[in-house]
Lab assay of single mutants.
Amino acid sequence: EKTLKIVADSEEEAEALAKELAEKYNLEVTIERNPEEEGKYVITIKIKP
């Protein structure tokens, strides 16, 4: 299993990107607040072998 993390500037941007990735590529995608940067969100994508 591989994990890729993407940082987005807004929750709306994160949700839109996560939804597109999940639907288009059938990936497991989660969104959470970035504890290191206020106002940023981390999109985590898990790629199963």
Rank of each mutant, 00 (worst) to 15 (best):
E1K: 08
E1P: 14
E1Y: 04
E1D: 10
E1A: 13
E1R: 12
E1V: 14
K2F: 06
K2N: 13
K2T: 14
K2P: 06
K2W: 08
K2H: 13
T3E: 06
T3N: 04
T3P: 07
T3K: 06
T3G: 04
T3Q: 05
L4S: 03
L4D: 02
L4K: 03
L4C: 14
L4M: 10
L4F: 15
L4T: 04
K5I: 13
K5N: 05
K5Y: 15
K5E: 06
K5M: 13
K5T: 15
K5V: 13
I6C: 05
I6W: 15
I6R: 03
I6P: 00
I6H: 03
I6A: 02
I6K: 02
V7L: 10
V7T: 10
V7W: 13
V7K: 13
V7A: 08
V7I: 12
V7N: 12
A8Y: 03
A8Q: 02
A8F: 13
A8D: 00
A8H: 01
D9T: 06
D9H: 11
D9I: 04
D9N: 13
S10C: 04
S10N: 07
S10V: 01
S10R: 02
S10Y: 02
S10E: 01
S10L: 02
E11N: 05
E11V: 12
E11T: 05
E11H: 10
E11Q: 12
E11Y: 15
E11D: 03
E12Y: 07
E12M: 07
E12T: 06
E12H: 06
E12R: 07
E12F: 07
E12L: 06
E12P: 04
E13I: 09
E13P: 00
E13Y: 06
E13S: 07
E13Q: 10
E13G: 03
E13L: 10
A14R: 00
A14D: 00
A14G: 02
A14K: 01
A14L: 02
A14W: 02
E15M: 15
E15I: 14
E15T: 13
A16I: 08
A16N: 08
A16L: 10
A16D: 03
L17M: 11
L17G: 00
L17S: 01
L17F: 10
L17I: 13
L17H: 02
L17A: 03
L17C: 07
A18I: 07
A18F: 05
A18N: 01
A18S: 04
A18G: 05
A18E: 02
A18P: 00
A18C: 05
K19W: 08
K19T: 06
K19M: 06
K19D: 02
K19S: 07
K19F: 07
K19I: 05
K19P: 00
E20L: 14
E20M: 15
E20H: 13
E20F: 15
E20W: 15
L21V: 03
L21D: 00
L21R: 00
L21T: 01
L21S: 00
L21C: 04
L21E: 00
L21A: 02
A22K: 08
A22W: 14
A22I: 11
E23M: 14
E23L: 15
E23C: 15
K24C: 14
K24R: 10
K24M: 09
K24T: 06
K24I: 08
K24A: 07
Y25C: 08
Y25H: 03
Y25D: 02
Y25N: 02
Y25V: 01
Y25K: 01
Y25T: 02
Y25F: 05
Y25Q: 02
N26L: 05
N26G: 11
N26V: 03
N26A: 08
N26K: 14
N26R: 10
N26D: 05
N26Y: 05
L27F: 09
L27K: 03
L27A: 12
L27Y: 13
L27C: 09
L27G: 14
L27W: 10
E28C: 13
E28S: 10
E28H: 12
E28M: 11
E28P: 14
E28K: 09
E28F: 10
E28L: 08
E28A: 08
E28T: 12
V29Q: 00
V29W: 15
V29N: 01
T30C: 07
T30F: 12
T30M: 08
T30W: 14
T30D: 04
T30R: 06
T30I: 09
I31A: 01
I31G: 00
E32F: 12
E32S: 11
E32M: 14
E32P: 00
E32D: 09
R33N: 07
R33W: 05
R33C: 05
R33V: 09
R33F: 08
R33Y: 07
R33Q: 11
R33E: 10
N34V: 12
N34I: 11
N34L: 14
N34E: 07
N34A: 09
N34F: 09
N34S: 14
N34C: 14
P35N: 09
P35K: 10
P35F: 11
P35C: 08
P35H: 08
P35Y: 11
P35R: 07
P35A: 09
E36C: 12
E36F: 11
E36S: 12
E36R: 10
E36P: 04
E36H: 10
E36D: 15
E36L: 11
E36G: 14
E36V: 09
E36I: 09
E37P: 06
E37T: 09
E37H: 12
E37M: 12
E37N: 09
E37R: 08
E38Q: 12
E38G: 14
E38T: 13
E38A: 12
E38M: 10
E38W: 11
E38P: 15
G39Y: 05
G39F: 06
G39A: 03
G39E: 04
G39S: 06
K40E: 04
K40Q: 09
K40T: 11
K40F: 04
K40V: 07
K40W: 05
K40Y: 04
K40M: 04
K40P: 03
Y41K: 01
Y41P: 01
Y41W: 15
Y41A: 01
Y41F: 11
Y41I: 04
Y41S: 01
Y41D: 00
Y41G: 01
V42M: 07
V42H: 03
V42P: 01
V42D: 03
V42Q: 03
I43Y: 02
I43G: 00
I43A: 01
T44P: 00
T44F: 14
T44N: 04
I45L: 13
I45M: 07
I45K: 00
I45G: 04
I45D: 00
I45F: 05
I45Y: 04
K46L: 13
K46A: 06
K46E: 04
K46I: 12
K46D: 03
K46F: 15
K46S: 08
K46Y: 15
K46N: 07
I47L: 14
I47M: 09
I47Y: 14
I47T: 06
I47Q: 05
I47G: 04
I47D: 03
K48C: 10
K48D: 07
P49A: 12
P49D: 09
P49Q: 12
P49K: 09
